[in-house]
Amino acid sequence: MARMTMIEALRSAMDVKLMDDPSVIVFGEDVGYFGGVFRCTAGLQARHGEERVFDTPINESAIVGLAVGMAAQGMRPCVEIQFADYVFPAYDQITQEAARLRHRSNEQFTCPLVVRMPTGGGIFGGQTHSQSPEALFTHVAGLKVVIPATPYDAKGLLISAIEDPDPVIFLEPKRIYNGPFFGDHSGKSVPWSSHPAGEVPEGHYTVPLGKAEIRRAGSDVTVLAYGTMVHVAEAAASEAGVDAEIIDLRTLLPLDVETIRTSVEKTGRCVVVHEATRTGGFGGELIAEVQEACFWHLRAPLLRVTGWDAPYPHAQEWDYFPSPARIARALVQVMGD
């Protein structure tokens, strides 16, 4: 077992797949010679050659459009969008093309591709390097939407995504690329090497898509979170002194409703946490699922702790980012109700 950061784990996943499947190729802006602005593909071109790992022009629509054409022929492109904030020129190719090709062609053509992109805030990136657009993809039939919270899951989920027969949006919480983040930006940063989830096997393994993971078992309240917020929620629960059951959703689409239902039926309370803006956010979908599945087990109103419905700020980042204190308040509130 090796110690890896999430960046190294993602790189290892691509390396493993580039080795064992000649149809896998990796491309995007700066991903070739240089190895990506976050270094996720560092060394892969040197190891696998320019035909397998290469740079593209700054044209997201082309990055995904080319990948759709390649995937339709049976290749398995794993492409990078430099920041999730830059995905919008490719939104047409993702939502109208990749997502629907299997269905509209009655399976004459399919689209096994992965679109990786760093998502979320916490790095002082301002409004164009901090957004969390997951709900814009979970609303699209035909896509799968994945977001890991640990290096181990990042690698196992990315290998599953590359092997999946359908298009996968793979969101990478960039705040936890190098270590878990517990919501206190002034605190000392913790590297993944000192965290148990930083232990990652060198070779091939998978973490299944569509399966949530209970990060912390608890009996008082279920917290539904994903990405960076899994760790922030853990910190918040201990700050609040609440015995929370923290569920890392890992895959948002298709959603593991069973794990959620089992937990909420046990706890009777549920708080949803995400960085993205609230209105129309994925939290609303989670609340609706919980309400439909668990209404008669609920002991308190369902709450959401999210980013505000404003553009992601630069200087005021920590007033925007859902803090452990805000989450703790929500936990205390549902316990008091």
């Binding site: 759709v68 054409g69 062609s105």
Partner: peptide
């Protein structure tokens, strides 16, 4: 909006232009 893979005819989208860059991707593959 036909689709006929065995006859060399890719699935038509109806969203204009998207197929043009996909053709380049197919050729690259």
């Amino acid at each position: 909006m036909h689709s006929a893979r065995d006859y060399g005819f890719f699935s038509i989208s109806g969203n204009l232009g998207t197929q043009y860059v996909q053709a380049v991707g197919w050729a690259m593959a």
